[in-house]
Simulated scan of single mutants.
Amino acid sequence: MFLKDRQRRNIDYIQTIKGVVTLLRDPGQTDSIYDVEEGLRNIKAAPLSVEFLKSKPEVAAIIAERYLAPEPDMNALLKLPKGSLGYEYASYLTEAGFDPNFYRKIAVVDDVSYVFLRIRQSHDIWHIITGMKTDVIGELGLKGFELAQTRRPMSIILLAGGLLRTLLSSPEHLDLLLDRIAVGYRMGAKAKPFLLAQKWEENWEKSVAEWRSELGVELAPVYVP
């Protein structure tokens, strides 16, 4: 058993390192993000982050339920009023040419794998709610928000990798990146710790403004260099 556990950890570490190296070369490699995350699932920090989440009763309830939403009907969402979460989500994905089901599916076998999958499924909704852009700097700003809300190990890895890559390849953007990460973390810390608890897909008609108000999400101020 010890040897099997050690072999598994070694495989996880190799998968994580390969994914991190790929991301440092090209942050747009989504598959590498999933490789890194799945390589981290057996480290001690992964279940600890889930225990942190489950300390919030609303989040503990959705984890216990294993709630996952069906595939969204984009045409139906585009018929909702402008400003509603459903319309803004569908409009954003359509204009960007994104597939709402692009994320890698994994079998839900425990709390850790459920949290992985639910965050992947609702990732773009978090972008809408926080107002964080989908460029590299915006993604890392969202990771700051996620870190405050979830203590997710993947957030730390991506933040560290993003800082290192910026330092080495485009240090002129370091101030902007640090600003977005700090702003994202403060937003996540000030907001109610319930974003993961939300069944967004059952309330598409609710306005983004209402969601933000209910959850205490304050939009990030515009960066001024």
Rank of each mutant, 00 (worst) to 15 (best):
H173T: 11
A182G: 13
L48D: 13
V183R: 12
L215H: 12
V208T: 09
I106V: 13
V59H: 02
I119T: 12
L159Q: 04
A182F: 07
K54L: 10
D111E: 03
A160D: 01
S91H: 13
F52T: 05
H127C: 04
A160N: 10
R9E: 07
G162T: 04
M132G: 00
D111V: 11
S169L: 08
V112F: 10
D111F: 02
I17L: 14
Y13V: 13
L164I: 13
K105R: 15
M132W: 06
E38S: 04
P171V: 00
I181R: 02
A61Y: 02
A60I: 05
F194D: 11
V36S: 08
K4V: 11
T134P: 03
K206Q: 03
D99P: 08
L168A: 11
D175I: 03
G144P: 05
Y87R: 04
E37W: 01
P221K: 04
L178S: 04
L85A: 13
P193K: 04
G39A: 01
K56D: 08
E139L: 13
Y89T: 00
A209F: 06
R151K: 11
E146H: 14
E58G: 07
L117Y: 02
A160G: 10
R152V: 05
N203C: 14
I119R: 11
E71S: 07
E88P: 05
E218M: 02
K190D: 14
